[in-house]
């Protein structure tokens, strides 16, 4: 973990500094003397290896100092404010994705080659096929203006949670539905399921008790990437719905060369992704008796 973070820190540190432009670039050019002073204040005048060591030290102490772009706040404060927002948005999106996706996947696998199956898979494909900014745009027109159920943007009420959560979760619901269907079909054709049917167990029991646990495996291994996807997808959704999460910070920090904030966010995202992947590995081993946890 520490090594992963260190590698990522190093890569991002040098990538950031290789990109033309720095955090002190503004539309109005600064007088050279002022710029010199600012560079000194932010230690940007030092040789790159000293900046590297300094920043590494800051990371180890978990204090990256102040953001360049949002100058009144420490990187830690920005993350502390944005993270819970992004996290709860992500959890709601995941809730949508899993509940819709698993249900649709199981139903279409069981009702294979019926109208229900075709309709669900068509819907799932539409979910996959459209960029989430298109889905969000259409949803806003439908449910904010034509049928005013939800507010257009903002954060803080249950209503404000539904649309962004759905738009963020929809593509993943669609993926999960497809993976689930495929996995389920595969399992349903296996001998032990046939045995279960042969014993005269009802479909419901067979599917939920016996097949689900194995069939859900591809979904589980998709959860890691799905989390990553929901995290990055939130960049778009947070911007469209004006939600004060980390996603919008991320783009702005990267394009605005906000070295400190960008670094903080990269490391946070890395930690998150790493944790999720580890959790997925553990649950994979726990769900599939054939995999031994090494």
């Amino acid at each position: 973990m520490a090594i992963t973070l260190w590698v990522i820190f190093t890569v991002s540190f040098f990538l950031m500094r290789a990109v033309p432009g720095g955090p002190l670039d503004r539309e109005r050019s600064l007088a050279p003397e002022i710029e010199k002073n600012l560079r000194e204040r932010y230690h940007l005048d030092e040789p790159i290896w000293r900046q590297y060591v300094r920043e590494l030290g800051n990371v180890v102490r978990l204090d990256l100092g102040y953001s360049f772009r949002l100058a009144d706040f420490r990187v830690g404060e920005i993350i502390a404010q944005g993270f819970p927002v992004s996290a709860s948005l992500g959890i709601v999106a995941m809730l949508f994705a899993l509940s819709l996706g698993l249900t649709a996947g199981i139903v279409s696998a069981v009702r294979r080659q019926t109208i229900v199956d075709v309709a669900l898979m068509l819907l799932a494909t539409v979910g996959i096929a459209l960029p989430n900014f298109v889905i969000a745009g259409v949803m806003i027109i439908l449910f904010v203006f034509i049928w005013p159920l939800f507010p257009a943007a903002g954060w803080g009420t249950l209503g404000q949670l539904v649309l962004p959560g759905f738009c963020l979760g929809a593509p993943y619901a669609a993926y999960i539905a497809r993976l689930m269907r495929t996995g389920m079909l595969e399992v349903l054709s296996q001998d032990y399921i046939r045995t279960a049917y042969a014993k005269g167990l009802p479909t419901r029991t067979v599917v939920l008790r016996h097949a689900l646990k194995t069939a859900v495996l591809p979904v589980v291994s998709f959860l890691g990437p799905a989390t990553a996807g929901i995290l990055t997808g939130s960049l778009v959704i947070e911007q469209i719905f004006a939600i004060p999460g980390l996603g919008a910070h991320f783009i702005q920090a990267a394009t605005g060369r906000d070295y400190t904030l960008a670094m903080g966010l990269v490391l946070i995202y890395t930690t998150l992704l790493y944790t999720m992947n580890t959790l997925v590995d553990i649950s994979y081993a726990y769900l599939d008796p054939r995999v031994k946890l090494e």
Binding site: V85, S88, L161
Partner: peptide, 9 residues
């Protein structure tokens, strides 16, 4: 998550 988010409002 939901309760926290709603408390914001």
């Amino acid at each position: 998550a939901i309760i926290w988010a709603v408390s914001f409002g």
